[in-house]
Design a protein around this nucleic acid. Structure first.
Lengths: 258, 258
DNA sequence: TCTGTCGTCTGGTCTAGATCAGCTGCCGAC
DNA sequence: GTCGGCAGCTGATCTAGACCAGACGACAGA
């Protein structure tokens, strides 16, 4: 942060000679100041683009470029046609702790909510079938949910379960129950091994809609396959997180020749 | 824009959200077609922005917005003031295999290179000191490198090592040797436990410069702390990857109550 | 042969608007 | 009290340029 006054008029040339390598463009700096002041006031919402534009003495396009930049950094985010907001602190997500979502969130003094979007039986899509060792088109349960942290929609998940492992699971209250808990309590199944694939992309259409996000918002994708005690893949998840919402962590012994 | 669809067959992307009518704006679709055709010709480089602009009958700004979108998806990337390129397939990076970089890359039939940027002794920065259980300002070795896959700069790393664990390590040929190998062969040290923190951000200034990237390009940040057989933190890395360059994977037993 | 300069090409940054479309709150009709 | 409609607000998308700065190659001079 810079000691820049939020309402410094036009571009102050003096503060950053063009050639200076580490010089932050003053627009970004002023914008950061604005973000910081909003955050300090406890106001998550930023002013309207047109107002910021006027206040920072710049163009709409230039302003938006700067905002998109801050969005990529994970400092601000937007909700579709609603406005820009200051990103809350990231949630810590320990990949190997395998805590149910609500427990993970609450253990960090945040509030968790889940919205059930779809719970249905379908024919396995090719990709999912491959993950679970099934044939494309085999019967599968699919559960789609959106999850919130402190009232903010941050996660869109699609679960795919083998019906032979979890008969009748769709009848439970899937907006309240943790799947992991259901597995253990009602199906006597313990997850003995998990496989993850992580990559950085954008929210796909369905996820963007469920999260009130703009098509193309940066996202952290987490694909997870759960295996039971016998090494059989019993279900797989595809998670799309707003990328500024989480910090992934993990601690383990190396498995290679270490 | 017109509903022109030169090679509309390219639109059905594999990661399309299920059950959603893919209502992709035609500009993105045409651009994808252009990318696909470039890729098919074996030409990684896209035409100049001004040419694409003319060819797709649109504005520079609109075109760039679409390109930035594809960049966020990991389909294209740019090199600073050089142009836009089609992203090669992602490298698979198994977090727990702990393979040296060159081995990992070569095992996937790709070519690895390393450029040593800095190797020096410094006072520990606060953050690093905390990771290694040192006091801020304690002596540390810092090694900074840029790493390439198939001639493309994809990774910027800063290593911080405890000098008491690795006396004289700066004298080795750090552009060629794997640190993990050096630890084992010359210092009899085996990494017994690793801790990772992963997050999605943008390339910081130094990384952007080292990777010929634009300030603000999306990045996957990987912080890694290595512990020896006695549980002591011996070094830590901070890696910044071009976000489209890798797929992270890992397989392990859950550590919680499972 | 080497080196430094310079022109050209490319993206980077910016100005100044217009129009489209979803979200929200207000208010009237029922 | 509820519901629907409408108006005003907000971001989303787009047009049509301008100038700046780094990358790169060609060429001339040492």
């Amino acid at each position: 942060m810079q000691p820049v006054s939020p309402v410094s008029a036009t571009v102050p040339d003096a503060d950053a000679p063009r050639g200076t390598p580490s010089s932050e463009p003053s627009l970004l700096a002023s914008l950061l100041a604005l973000v910081a002041s909003a955050a300090q006031r406890g106001d998550r919402r930023l002013p309207a683009e047109r107002e910021m534009m006027a206040r920072l003495a710049t163009t709409r396009i230039t302003l938006r470029e700067a905002l998109v930049q801050l969005e990529a950094e994970g400092r601000v985010y937007r909700e579709n046609r609603r406005g820009w907001f200051v990103s809350p602190p990231r949630l810590r997500y320990d990949l190997l702790a395998c805590l149910p979502f609500h427990d993970m969130v609450q253990s960090q003094q945040r509030r968790a909510q889940t919205r059930l979007l779809v719970a249905e039986e379908i024919g396995a899509p090719l990709e999912v079938a491959r993950h679970l060792g099934l044939a494309s088109g085999d019967r599968l349960y699919r559960i789609t949910r959106a999850r919130l942290v402190d009232e903010r929609r941050v996660l869109y998940v699609e679960h795919h379960l083998r019906p032979d492992c979890f008969p009748g699971i769709l009848a439970f209250d899937l907006a309240r129950e943790s799947l992991t808990d259901l597995y253990r309590r009602h199906y006597g199944l313990r997850v003995a091994r998990v496989s993850y694939a992580l990559s950085t992309t954008v929210l796909p259409e369905a996820a963007a809609r469920a999260l009130n996000a703009v098509r193309g918002s940066p996202a952290q994708r987490i694909t997870r396959i759960n295996h039971d005690q016998n090494g059989r893949a019993v279900d797989c998840d595809e998670e799309y997180w707003r990328h500024d919402a989480i910090d992934l962590t993990l601690t383990a012994a190396p498995q290679g020749g270490g």
